Amino acid sequence: MTKIIGLTGGIGSGKTTVAKMFSEQGIPVYIADEEAKKLMDLDEIIEEVRITFGNDTIVNNKIDRAKLAKIVFNNAEQLKKLNKIIHPAVQKHFKDWLKIHYSAPYVIKEAAILFETNGHKQCDKVITVVAPQLLRIERVILRDKSDKQSVLQRINNQWSEEKKIMLSDFVIENIDLEKTKTQVDDIIKLLNKI
């Protein structure tokens, strides 16, 4: 039975960078956020978003992600509604993906809101990536061309690092890439024993 290793971390922590490090070692990696973005192009998801958030969120039969982001990132209740639409579709997609990788001893499932959606309960182990908040804000501003206030709002919509660490089996401090790589290698050695 293939083991599922959850990989999570707050926005800007560098979990995608860490996921790539695992992938480079030949470990199958599922990036939930990337798959969720692709699934948002499915007709049934578009229709559910239209019904839940209104016609304004759909432009040329596609979800207007900027409009939808404005609605959900400032409102925890609206974010919950969106997750109820997207999360089951991602779960089903992940199960299908897992069937393809059944021969791997373990796979990495990278998800930003792994704990918030109780996704950690389907994992055999969980890795949380952490970094100082100022560095995280800096990274997101550079990556998304956003402002400090909107990054802070997104951070506040996620669980705190402390809460995630308490429920994690491994913690990677992602400040210096070389040190991060060493931590990944150490975790791979431990995972190869389970």
Rank of each mutant, 00 (worst) to 15 (best):
A131G: 09
G54V: 04
E116V: 06
I71H: 04
N156H: 12
K121H: 15
L68E: 10
F53S: 02
L134R: 11
I51F: 09
E44G: 00
K81A: 15
C123K: 02
P132G: 05
I63E: 08
N61Q: 14
V129G: 04
L42K: 12
I71L: 14
R143K: 11
I137Q: 03
E138L: 02
F115N: 04
I137R: 01
I85Q: 10
K84M: 15
F115G: 02
P88Q: 13
E110T: 01
N55A: 13
I45T: 09
L134W: 11
Q133I: 15
Q158S: 00
I63M: 07
Q78D: 15
V72D: 11
L114C: 10
V72Y: 07
Q91R: 15
P105H: 04
N75E: 05
E161F: 08
L79V: 03
L98R: 13
L39N: 07
K148D: 08
H93W: 06
S168V: 02
I45Q: 06
L142F: 14
K145W: 04
A69W: 05
E162S: 12
V107Y: 03
G54M: 05
I141P: 00
L152N: 12
V90I: 10
I63Q: 07
I46S: 00
N60R: 08
I45R: 03
A111D: 03
H87L: 12
A66T: 14
K70H: 12
P132A: 05
V72F: 08
I155K: 06
D96I: 11
I51A: 09
K62F: 06
N60E: 15
I165F: 09
G119K: 00
L167Y: 13
Q158H: 04
K163C: 02
W97F: 08
N75F: 01
T57K: 07
Y102Q: 13
D56M: 07
R50P: 03
A112H: 02
R139E: 02
S103N: 13
I100L: 14
Y102T: 12
P88T: 09
Q91D: 11
C123Q: 04
I45V: 15
D41T: 14
A89P: 01
A111E: 08
L42V: 05
I71Y: 01
L114H: 09
K67E: 12
F94S: 02
W159Q: 11
C123S: 05
R143Y: 06
I86P: 07
L68R: 08
M166W: 09
K62C: 11
N74Q: 12
I108S: 00
L152I: 11
K70T: 10
W97A: 03
H101W: 06
N83L: 08
D124F: 09
E48C: 07
V151G: 01
K121T: 14
Q91L: 14
A66K: 13
D56F: 06
P88H: 10
K38C: 07
N55P: 04
D96V: 10
I127G: 03
E77Q: 12
V126H: 05
A104H: 07
F53W: 06
V90S: 07
I58G: 03
A69Q: 08
Q149K: 12
H87R: 10
V130M: 04
I45W: 04
A104D: 10
E110V: 02
E138F: 04
V72R: 08
R136Y: 00
I108R: 00
L42A: 13
L135W: 02
